[in-house]
Amino acid sequence: MNRLDSESGATLVGDYGSGLRRTEIHQLSDGAFRWTQRAGAVCPAPLTAPDPALACAIRACSVTGARWVPATTSELSPGVLTYLTNSPLSAVDWLDFDQPCTRQILATALENAGRALQALHQVGAPDSVAAPPGPRRIACWLDEADSSLGNLARLAELAWPRWGRARLSCLRDWCIMPRRDTVLVHGFASLGTLLPPLVAPGSEFLIGADLAVGRPESDLGWLLGELHELRWVGIHQGVDFPALGQALLRGYGPGCHEAALGRNAVLRIVAHLHDFAAYAGWTKEFTRYIDFAAELIDDEGRRAVEGSVI
């Protein structure tokens, strides 16, 4: 994987992505890391960074133990987002470290992420910021605006009869993000954007590509949905995913609407299903995922947040 970039002197240490987004990670000569995101081959819209004033406000929401790292861009590369960090490893990578101390590091990182999200949600949301992109992509698919395209058509043929009209109606209703009672949100908060501390103290939280306006529960539910999905997949047997969810909500504090948390957790899992079909490819696992999602829709995501809500 490691490869020297002769033009910049940086070493490529990570390269991954899909048709939606591509990410590269370079280690710089001073030891820092540069994360670079570009739109994938079939990304529906160019990537944009927050304007300088908003980026400054987001940085000010950093808390002890968690630093916000807003995306930046340049006139020479307007569609390329850059983040300068102290680590090349996200929380997803840390899940593979099967050591007791790493479990505590992850729990601390998520608790501090909750505190950082609480601070972010106090920032006024500009009128120019749209609703979170994940629910918008699901709504577009459910409205059949893009269900005739490639794998999304196949996914619709497989999922919609199994879900039925009532479940589809619920999903579509949950995708609606009214402007009232909304705040500035990360838009796609995930373990892949949270970087636990490697050398420097404190975690780092990448933000910018999906910045949105929505209910606070959209960020928290998104992370809880991801944790529940990882628990269901069963690859990381030694990880106590409910405990990580508890750490997140403990850091955030009281005031979350439990039903909204559950519904957003369901949307996170359905968004993963949609995005994999649209931007990665087809897999025989879709049938299992569709049935998994159906059970979650039926109980409005309660099982995705149970054990996490304090």
Rank of each mutant, 00 (worst) to 15 (best):
D275K: 04
D173L: 13
H228Q: 10
V123M: 01
A57M: 06
G221A: 08
G301L: 08
V309H: 08
V309A: 08
P50Y: 07
N264Q: 09
R103L: 11
G14C: 05
F33V: 03
L206H: 15
H236N: 12
A294P: 05
T36C: 09
R250S: 15
Q237D: 13
G281D: 12
P50V: 05
A293I: 14
Y279H: 15
A189V: 07
Q246S: 06
A53M: 03
I58V: 09
G262Y: 06
L224S: 04
Y16G: 07
P52T: 09
H272G: 14
V63D: 14
L267R: 03
D93I: 02
R268H: 01
D98N: 14
R137M: 09
T193E: 13
P100H: 04
D96C: 10
T48L: 11
Q118E: 01
R172I: 02
V239M: 12
G251V: 06
L106W: 06
D51W: 03
G14A: 13
C61V: 04
L54S: 05
W35F: 11
V305A: 11
L4D: 03
R137L: 12
I297Q: 07
W160M: 15
L106P: 06
L84C: 13
A200R: 11
P126S: 09
R115T: 05
S147P: 10
S90I: 03
P242K: 05
P100L: 01
A189Y: 11
L191W: 10
G208L: 04
T182C: 13
A116N: 02
L267Q: 03
S6K: 02
A189E: 01
H186C: 04
L230Q: 13
Q99H: 08
A55F: 13
R268Y: 00
A271I: 01
A153V: 03
E258N: 01
G208R: 09
H272A: 06
A260T: 03
A200N: 09
V80F: 04
R115D: 02
E111T: 07
V309M: 12
W222E: 02
R167M: 10
D210S: 12
V129P: 03
S87D: 04
E157N: 14
P52D: 07
L220K: 00
I235Y: 08
L198Y: 09
H228A: 15
P70K: 04
G124F: 00
A53C: 04
A159F: 10
L198W: 10
G114K: 04
L120S: 01
D5C: 11
M1G: 14
T72K: 06
